[in-house]
Design a protein around this nucleic acid. Structure first.
Lengths: 242, 242
DNA sequence: GCAGTCAGTAAACGGTGTTCACCCACCAGT
DNA sequence: ACTGGTGGGTGAACACCGTTTACTGACTGC
């Protein structure tokens, strides 16, 4: 952002150019087409020059991932702002629908960011990667679920073995929400809430991934009704009729 | 199976050797290591010789996929046979648990078969690929859900726009079940049942994929309780307490 | 025995990621 | 204004890769 010297400005420029070119190649021809030589060719430089900017192809792909998830968050946030905070359910729905729409419209980006095993890109455990989206999702789902402090309707207790990890995550989430301005009364974020968020995320992820990959057990031409009914069902689990 | 001539026997042998070698490379070093030259090197032949067996690397990978899902089915079926047909719920649970266990024990195989976008492997739309598993799952879930002819507890009607596709799939499934010996009274396979199976599959897939990829929104060391509670919840949706 | 089939080979083409030595425009300091 | 260093970019090279081509040579069916 704050490039003072002339050199730094130029460097930042070509860095942006590299990422943009990589994204274009990814979108148009798939991740296998994101090639150091292809990028260099397009920028009018040679492949080894790219090593001044990234340690390796894997490193470059990792940055492309970050770039993509930042874009995803930038797409979701405006849709979110259009819905008043007083309608948290609608906000969560907006995020979910937005995520699905984005994934369908950007299948290759989705695949790279959300459906590539960490080892393929050489991702070291906990990259921020999809965290940009995770934050958006959690910052919406968190308030929704915490403000109405609802336990799963099924009266499910949180499995004993999960309590420890869920507790750690609750603290992490609470801190992140506080840092973002949202004030959530600490105790309102119950473990059951965290538990629900996890299940919600797994379910939405499953649907979207299957739809993007066309891996439903039979050819589904239009999975939107399936998605919508999942949303209303999820909402009803939390205690809303939609 | 039935190789009559000597030549055919030899050919089938080296074909098995190729697949075995490819699988080993996949498991040990990831799919990027499954290389025609590496396979040839290991078999003591040269790379172009492999073209006598497969049209291309993509074609070979496709056969590896089939090999893997056949193995998956072979792993699941015995676990299944150990549970009497009179306990369909336990049978479905066994398949689900077996699938998760297999995926965790074979992350790279899982990734290749279940989480690779069709275009990467050049898969032409509807490969049997994961169908081997799909069949096992459906042949268990189908009877369970049809015999007890339960609608989703949430009283959800099947979305109008899905009825057509669900109907087509019901007929397909019924035919496949009949072919496998299971006799399912046609009308018992209600659309709501098919609908449930779809959601069940999406949910299980989502959980397993997230777990294999380590993409839960926070570091979950042991997701088994999460998985188990999902199973009991799914069962309760169908009307059983477990 | 002969002709044909077919697994396997060698060589080549164009592509890849990555490393190395080098060049040279620019910038800071005297 | 000269100088020395920093750093973006180059060219050649290495070791791979998938794939095609023309060719060999052993086995097979007649």
């Amino acid at each position: 952002m704050t490039e003072s010297t002339r050199r730094e400005k130029l460097r930042a420029d070509t860095e942006r150019e590299i990422l943009a070119c990589a994204r274009r190649l990814l979108v148009e021809d798939g991740s296998h087409a994101v090639t150091l030589r292809a990028i260099a060719r397009e920028l009018g430089i040679t492949a080894p020059a790219l090593y001044r900017y990234y340690d390796s192809r894997a490193d470059l792909l990792r940055h492309v991932c970050d770039d993509i998830s930042a874009d995803l968050a930038a797409t979701l946030n405006p849709q979110l702002s259009a819905i008043p905070i007083s309608q948290p359910t609608e906000r969560v729905f907006a995020v979910c629908r937005g995520f699905r729409q984005w994934a369908l419209a950007h299948p290759r980006e989705f695949t790279l960011v959300f459906a590539t095993s960490p080892e393929e890109t050489g991702t070291p455990a906990n990259r921020p990667a999809q965290d940009h989206f995770g934050r958006v999702f959690l910052e919406v789902a968190g308030p929704l679920l915490s403000e109405h402090k609802i336990y799963p309707s099924g009266s499910l207790d949180v499995p004993e073995r999960l309590r420890g990890e869920l507790t750690a995550y609750r603290d992490d989430l609470a801190a992140s929400l506080a840092a973002a301005g949202h004030q959530v009364a600490g105790e309102k974020l119950q473990l059951g809430t965290i538990y629900l968020i996890l299940q919600w995320w797994a379910r939405m992820y499953g649907h979207v991934a299957l739809e993007v990959f066309g891996r439903f057990p039979f050819a589904v031409n239009d999975a939107e009704p399936l998605f919508e009914s999942m949303l209303t069902e999820l909402a009803s689990v939390v205690g809303f009729s939609s």
